[in-house]
Design a protein around this nucleic acid. Sequence first.
DNA 1: ATCCGTGCAAAGAATTTGCATACAT
DNA 2: ATGTATGCAAATTCTTTGCACGGAT
Lengths: 127, 127
Amino acid sequence: MLKYSRQRESIKSYLDTHRTHPTAETVYLDIKQEFPNISLGTVYRNLNLLAEMGEILRISPGNGPDRYDGNAAPHYHFICTRCGRVLDIDLDHQSQLDELAGEHFDGKIVSHITHFFGLCPECKLNN
Amino acid sequence: MLKYSRQRESIKSYLDTHRTHPTAETVYLDIKQEFPNISLGTVYRNLNLLAEMGEILRISPGNGPDRYDGNAAPHYHFICTRCGRVLDIDLDHQSQLDELAGEHFDGKIVSHITHFFGLCPECKLNN
DNA sequence: ATCCGTGCAAAGAATTTGCATACAT
DNA sequence: ATGTATGCAAATTCTTTGCACGGAT
């Protein structure tokens, strides 16, 4: 049975109010203000728990540490190839892609993720 | 200047003939038959080189080690959530998604990747 | 002759885990 | 009281890197 913990609560609430797609390390350092004794292991354990429960999203940028997103609804992300920033993309989730992909595929397709790459607004300016 | 190396040649040719999206470790172990002294570091170095040159693709499944693909043309992959297998998806690259994603985005979108998830044909049967 | 690539081993980055204790039920 | 969650540190996994030597140009 899953028991309540203030740490997990705080991590969830941190992700709900910070839509910066932080790393576990960032969550850890920021939450440390409130829980000076919290450990990085606890942060990882709870991020994993929350992701498994479907309450948050894990984003693997393919480079560097994973990012976490308090918005668990399927949506797309942009990853800046210059600064690494992760941003939400305002584009409807293309669920029809799952059917399209399944047309010539013998397995069962359940979902997909899409990462867009390029320059974030800031890096585009300072180019 | 880039110099020829038998090791790099062998790695490239391995990926061209094995469309299994192997990990660096798998490439290493298999190529060891031909080059008993090759080191894992050399395999990583050359995989990175080839990927930077655009001759191969690196696939980050988001779980476990990266996979490599001798087919460098943009295409989509399926990742089995049960066995981890990585398979090609027979679906045209949806380059229009880059424009769609860019419509409400102030940065510059250059490319995207999409990973499909679900059960591979084999795992679907042994379910 | 020059200098890039290799093998080896050690280092590094990110994440997980074992264990004793603290806390929620 | 029972058992899950935590903090801490060590361990694990994957990848990169420094260095001396070998090989390509």
